[in-house]
Amino acid sequence: MKMHRFLFVAAFAAAMAAGLLFGNFGSAKASGDLAFEHQEWTFNGIFGRFDRAALRRGHQVYQEVCSSCHGLSLVAYRNLMDIDFSEEEAKEIAAENEVEDGPNNEGEMFTRPAKLSDRFVAPFPNEQAARYSNNGAYPPDLSLMVKARKGGADYLYGVLTGYEDEAPEGVEMMDGMYFNHSFPGHQIAMPQPIYEDSVEYEDGTPATVAQMSKDVTTFLAWTAEPELEERKSLGIKVLIFVLLLTALLYAVKRRIWSKLH
């Protein structure tokens, strides 16, 4: 019986190893020439949670800096209430934006202040307008950005903090491009968005580039995986249950089979 059990474990180990092998080789390849470092994030690990204060500050950075170029089309203002904004605050944030609605009873379209049920209002009406204002480059929607790049939050933080004042010797920069050591190819069309004191934090935290980058990345990790906290806390309970049940089944199995020999 020992041998069998060993083989069983080996099967799963092999399957997992296969996954690791394929999964990792893929990512090692894509991030081969990129420079970004691993950061500590409160939302990593099996007990991971989003730091509420960081989310609030991150939201402020998004609003005051990024939202002039990037949309957040999958997030609704009501979702802010999931991360401890009060209903009043969420309504206020929504109402700062105008959305087109209609047609009304006279068949006319009209604009009104955004409501809780609206999604974050995009800065540009369409891709062409966005490109037109950005030198031909398209600032992508940020809702899923953290999930849509190898390296996730670490990569995003890397890009935000990866600007150099000047391109290194011998690097020919294309028109309207900025040197960034974390972006693939090192030439990015987004001008450095965050500088020292770009925002004045409501909670008085010193607004360094690193702090703001970290905060806005945390906020965008939440927009990408708003279910993360629920998922992890439910996951622990479910796994404990499965573990106990499996142990019980193993005991029953031993007992039933012991009659055989």
Binding site: F12, G23, I46, L239, V242, L243, T246, L249, V252, I256
Partner: peptide, 26 residues
């Protein structure tokens, strides 16, 4: 039946670990 059920428990442990903690790994 009991042996398969025990195996199922182990299977669920692996499967649900991925689902809850590494859902985008693959």
């Amino acid at each position: 039946t009991v042996k398969d059920n025990f195996g199922l428990g182990v299977f669920f442990f692996v499967y649900l670990t991925i689902v809850f903690f590494f859902p985008n790994f693959f």
